[in-house]
């Protein structure tokens, strides 16, 4: 890996050789270093030794549960994990996301989409986590963390405390799919873990306040029966 130290390192865990092939091609064209693995076991070894910047993980692997792999990784690393899953695996997806995965793509997926997602996560990683101490701007909205102020088009936007917590929580995890459970736990606390409708209702209110076209949102995107994704 001599001389590759500046290139982002991607670990691709997928048992289907053809998928590995085109994903690798695309990522290498993007200037990434790709390490492949067809089992969870190898994947763990790769993850521990290659200092990856992102892991792309297929959920249906022959030698184990993707969820266990995520738990293992999350024990020692915060590195972004992107999941590839089939459409019928809703529950699996949610479990993986709850376990700590950051994002998912449903097969069949477009290469352009994959690249865009990976770029977003790499950017998030390099831009650092202390961003949320300052100011975040998206669309016509500006969040000032320090002053605890949200402005839209330069005017102060009145948010209730929960709306504020919800917005800041989403905005501090951009591009990540946040499951309903995660959102409930972070914004409402653990005692509300069953009240999924709270998330929907508050998400609807928040959209009306920050989206230009709430029915076709640009920032708070719904992920059917999984959760939400915030896009800056």
């Amino acid at each position: 890996m001599a001389g590759d130290s500046t290139k982002p390192v991607v670990i691709l865990i997928e048992d289907e050789i053809q998928i590995r092939r085109f994903v690798r091609m695309a990522l290498e064209a993007e200037g990434c270093v790709v390490h492949e693995s067809d089992t969870i076991k190898r994947g763990l070894i790769e993850a521990a030794t290659r200092h990856p910047d992102i892991i792309v993980l297929d959920l249906g692997l022959p030698d184990g549960e993707g969820v266990d792999f995520i738990h293992d990784i999350r024990n020692w690393s915060e590195i972004p994990i992107l999941i590839l899953s089939a459409r019928t695996e809703e529950k699996e997806k949610v479990r993986a996301l709850d376990a700590g995965a950051d994002d998912y793509l449903t097969k069949p997926f477009g290469v352009a989409e994959l690249i865009a997602r990976i770029r977003a996560h790499l950017r998030r990683r390099t831009s650092g986590k202390n961003e949320n101490q300052g100011v975040i701007e998206f669309g016509s909205v500006r969040i000032d963390w320090q002053k605890r102020i949200v402005e839209r088009n330069g005017k102060i936007l009145h948010l209730t405390p929960i709306e504020y917590r919800l917005l800041t929580y989403m905005a501090s995890n951009p591009d990540c799919v946040l499951t309903q459970k995660q959102i409930l736990k972070s914004v409402w606390g653990p005692s509300h873990s069953e009240d999924v409708h709270y998330v929907r209702i508050y998400m609807g209110r928040l959209r009306k306040k920050i989206e230009d076209l709430p029915s076709q949102p640009k920032h708070i995107m719904t992920e059917s029966s999984v959760g939400y994704r915030f896009i800056l």
């Binding site: 289907e16 085109f22 089939a86 019928t88 069949p108 290469v111």
Partner: peptide, 27 residues
């Protein structure tokens, strides 16, 4: 049975889509 069929049918489709995409993006 259904999920096996769905997996077996979708995997080659995913590959097709991916390969077609890659083809379009070659340099």
């Amino acid at each position: 049975l259904l999920s096996a069929i769905s997996h077996d049918l979708r995997t080659p489709l995913s590959i097709l889509v991916g390969l077609a995409d890659s083809m379009a993006m070659t340099k």
